[in-house]
């Protein structure tokens, strides 16, 4: 299996790419400009595409090269383009009502990464895999998940909510490339397209929100309580 006999160079490349993706999540967390989030998300998707390709080459999974191309095209180009169009149409360039200052969100994000590492390390120890790349993959997976949730909680703009969900998705996708590169191709394909449908749905709903409520901030969605 890939994670058991990985040559050092491949291991270094995988680690580098995973850490890059994590850092890009922090770029999103630290900025209040929505466009920066989208660019960081696009970059993160390209990093994941590179990771897919690297795993494909080193693990001899030729179909992953195909997935890498699709990831770069859909996640790395089409989705950011759709999001940019929404932002340009609705002129939401900035997150105006963040709950926390960027610095505090970064610290919180750091704590979440620490927690993810503790969890991943514990799992690794229990499964006798503590010194392999598994721990790093699990850490990134859990950390991106938690950072995505943090973004959902702290941000109010509708586009930020989509980006939060996409970060969660990216985390799962990234982790699964390293942990289960052999996961059935069909499933990965369907999930990619599923994402596309979800983002189009969100885009449509945001436009309705804007038109019917005159706001795209979730803090003002307060009609339904109790």
């Amino acid at each position: 299996m890939l994670i058991f006999h990985l040559d050092p160079l491949a291991s270094a490349i995988f680690s580098l790419l995973a850490i890059l993706a994590l850092i890009l999540a922090f770029v999103m967390l630290g900025s209040h400009w929505v466009k920066n989030h989208i660019y960081a998300f696009a970059a993160e998707s390209w990093v994941i595409a590179a990771l897919s390709a690297a795993v494909g080459v080193y693990g001899h999974y030729p179909e992953l090269l195909f997935i890498a191309v699709l990831t770069a095209l859909l996640r790395g180009s089409l989705l950011p383009y759709m999001l940019l169009r929404i932002v340009n149409d609705l002129k939401q360039s900035r997150e105006f009502t963040p709950l926390l200052q960027p610095a505090s969100s970064l610290v919180l994000g750091g704590l979440l990464v620490l927690f993810s590492f503790a969890l991943a390390h514990r799992l690794g120890v229990r499964m006798q895999l503590a010194d392999s790349i598994v721990v790093l993959a699990l850490t990134t997976m859990f950390a991106l998940k938690l950072i995505g949730f943090l973004m959902l909680v702290l941000r109010a703009e509708a586009v930020s909510a989509i980006l939060g969900l996409l970060v969660i998705e990216n985390g799962i996708f990234l982790g699964s490339q390293i942990l289960v590169p052999g996961m059935p191709l069909l499933l990965e394909l369907v999930i990619l397209f599923d994402l596309l449908i979800i983002v189009s749905t969100f885009g449509l709903l945001i436009r309705y929100l804007h038109r019917e409520l005159g706001t795209t901030s979730s803090r003002e969605l307060t009609r339904l309580v109790g």
């Binding site: 959902l152 509708a158 909510a161 969900l165 979800i198 749905t201 969100f202 709903l205 309705y208 929100l209 019917e212 409520l213 979730s218 969605l221 009609r223 339904l224």
Partner: peptide, 9 residues
Amino acid sequence: IEAAWKYIV
């Protein structure tokens, strides 16, 4: 619309 948005998120 508010309900649909909260639902899907």
